[in-house]
């Protein structure tokens, strides 16, 4: 086993990697935290060399994307590059010194992604597709925090089809557990999980960017056969009603039985979000 670079995926949700994180503010070596729209933010990745051979000058690339499922190297937004040299079995935290300034789209919710490779000794697969769950080089953190207003919440996201032919996808919701976010606590210390998960109702998708509350009841938890034209994207909105302090919801993009994309939404009540902001 020569050089084997890896940025670990999340577990069980592979799109919730604890090896990719952000440091908001002007100090790239500051504390991890949630990106703030309009302010500098630095990306980090924890890169493992699981091989038995040292690697010099491996490349680490960093990207961001709007909350979406199915983006690839062509549709994600490239932030910057870093390099790392690692001994066999060594792990290093790698800083991308090019600042990322989150933009005010989708209320500032964005996904981050990093990939580590060596151009000759451990190259990436020859495809623009990230293949996060199967490709050890790449990992993503696709977590958005949404505050429910009057118990109702909604978050817009995109379904990407980076292919050259039209495709049909299925999107489905899946209720998650707060335990899945525990491993992220070190890289998201300012996201305080409520002590107890609440309940959600009417969770599903609506084919509108800003649905009215009356439309929430029409939301479908699974939408099948969503046709997305070649090389394009389609917008959807996740909606629901929260009872209690918070809930974790996964959005899965499927092609047949295969999960090809995913994002997670942590829904917090106004009370829980307020406590989070105060650091309680």
């Amino acid at each position: 086993m020569a050089i084997q670079l890896e940025i670990e995926d999340g577990n069980p949700a592979w799109y919730l990697s604890h090896d990719v994180w952000t440091v908001p503010g002007d100090n790239p070596e500051g504390s991890p935290g949630v990106p703030v729209v309009g302010n500098n933010c630095y990306l980090w990745a924890r890169v493992h060399n699981n091989g038995t051979t040292p690697v010099s000058n491996a490349t680490v690339r960093f990207y961001w994307a709007n909350p979406s499922v199915g983006f690839d190297r062509n549709t994600a937004n490239f932030i910057g590059t870093a390099f790392v040299s690692l001994a066999a079995s060594e792990v290093a935290e790698v800083l991308c010194l090019t600042p990322w300034v989150p933009v005010f789209v989708n209320n500032g919710h964005e996904c981050i992604l990093a990939e580590a490779f060596h151009p000759s000794a451990d190259p990436l697969p020859a495809s623009p597709v990230f293949n996060v769950p199967t490709d050890r080089h790449v990992a993503q953190r696709n977590l958005s925090v949404v505050v429910a207003a009057n118990s109702m919440f909604h978050m817009a996201f995109e379904i990407h089809n980076p292919g050259r032919k039209p495709r049909r996808f299925e999107v489905a919701t899946q209720l998650g557990k707060f335990e899945e976010l525990r491993t992220l606590q070190t890289v998201l210390p300012d996201v305080k999980l409520p002590p107890k998960a609440g309940k959600v109702e009417f969770v599903g998708f609506i084919d509108k960017h800003c649905p009215t509350e009356a439309e929430f009841k029409n939301a479908k938890p699974v939408v099948q056969a969503i046709e997305v034209a070649a090389g394009s994207r389609k917008g959807m909105t996740l909606v629901g009603k929260l009872e209690g302090d918070g809930a974790l919801i996964h959005v899965l993009q499927k092609d047949g039985e295969q999960i090809i994309g995913g994002l997670s939404v942590l829904v917090l009540s106004e009370k829980a979000a307020h406590a989070c902001n105060k650091g309680e």
């Binding site: 000058n57 590059t81 870093a82 390099f83 790698v94 090019t98």
Partner: peptide, 19 residues
């Protein structure tokens, strides 16, 4: 010890990596 450039703050600066 070894020494290398990890990263730069402007994406328009293209480093030839070396350790």
């Amino acid at each position: 010890a070894t020494v290398y450039i990890e990263s730069v703050s402007h994406p328009g600066i293209v480093i030839t990596p070396a350790t």
